[in-house]
């Protein structure tokens, strides 16, 4: 637990190819905002003799967000960039909310969304939200490009499918149907054991049919329970085909709980964790469904704007 960082080599390549080459040669991680890496280096939780910065590579801070084309964010796009964007708030609300609720807000000005997804920190919020939006990561490495679903990205605590020298250049969330809504919520807790995490977070995405009477698609994600967020397909199956209502959301939440293992061996802690988790999931799904139902952004308008633009 140092007060300052230990020395390291530092490279500032100006192209992705150069960055990949440097990272491979030095077996070095990439650094973007540094919001996760810098504190962990200072605390000696990680030791890295060499870092490769993406700061000077042009183009990585491009982003586009549109109901028709989806959300595409370059590796350097910081969380606060999403906040004023109208379609981010309306059509990708779960990620927008997670960005809005980053603590402290300053982090949103520094940390990139892709960096947050790549860090593999179990309690982070953005992976939970992005997973509910079916996010996929565009990975570039020496062997070429590949696309990895966020769901398949995490392999262990702080570990991902990336090998050294592979870099995520962008994250993409596909467009979804008009009557869709998403939502993100979290609850802070006190850690009780060494395996415990200090919060719970959840995100959901609900799509309704054209009459807005039945759920035709749903994604339910819970994070901060294990080393990574998970999608709960049993809960989604509870929702799909049904009319949205409070009891249904509770059943969906219970379907998630049925798959969860206790985190600690303290009975009272687990009882309250499960109880809070149930409320969190239920309310998150309810909010997503309510947004789907309200359809406050007529999809047709978006189509016109897109045509005007093209």
């Amino acid at each position: 637990m140092g007060r300052v960082l230990l020395p390291f080599e530092f490279y500032e390549p100006e192209s992705v190819a150069e960055a990949i080459d440097l990272a491979r040669r030095h077996s070095a991680p990439f650094i973007m905002g540094g919001c996760t890496l810098v504190p962990s280096l200072r605390r000696r939780q990680r030791r890295e003799p060499c870092l490769v910065s993406l700061a000077r590579i042009p183009g990585l801070d491009d982003f586009s967000i549109h109901p028709r084309t989806g959300m595409r964010l370059g590796a350097k796009v910081v969380a606060s960039a999403l906040l004023p964007h109208i379609w981010a708030g309306k059509r990708f609300a779960a990620l927008h909310e997670a960005c809005e609720q980053l603590y402290p807000p300053h982090i949103g000005n520094m940390g990139s969304i892709v960096g947050n997804l790549c860090s593999g920190v179990p309690y982070f919020d953005l992976p939970t939200a992005a997973m509910a939006l079916d996010a996929e990561l565009h990975v570039t490495g020496q062997g070429g490009d590949r696309v990895v679903k966020l769901e398949d990205f995490y392999t262990a605590k702080f570990q991902t499918v990336l090998s050294r020298g592979e870099v995520v250049t962008q994250v993409f969330c596909p467009p979804h149907k008009a009557d869709s809504g998403s939502s993100f919520k979290k609850i802070y807790r006190s850690r009780r054991t060494i395996d415990d995490l200090h919060k719970l977070n959840a995100a959901a995405m609900v799509t309704l049919d054209e009459d807005r009477a039945r759920i035709i698609d749903a994604r339910v994600v819970l994070g901060s329970w294990s080393f990574r967020p998970h999608r709960y397909r049993a809960a989604e199956a509870v929702l799909v085909g049904e009319a949205p209502n409070f009891d249904l959301f509770e059943q969906a939440a219970d379907a998630v709980l049925a798959e969860l293992d206790p985190v600690t061996d303290l009975a009272w802690v687990e009882k309250t964790r499960f109880a809070q988790c149930r409320v969190l999931l239920r309310d998150t799904i309810a909010q997503a469904a309510s947004r789907a139902k309200s359809r406050h952004d007529p999809f047709e308008d978006a189509a016109e704007i897109l045509e005007d633009a093209s």
Binding site: C35, V38, P39, S80, P104, H106, N109, M110
Partner: peptide, 20 residues
Amino acid sequence: GGNCGACTVLMDGVPVCSCI
């Protein structure tokens, strides 16, 4: 650790935690 805001400075006009 980027958790308290005491080190806030503005970088290109937006607040950042200068400690991290």
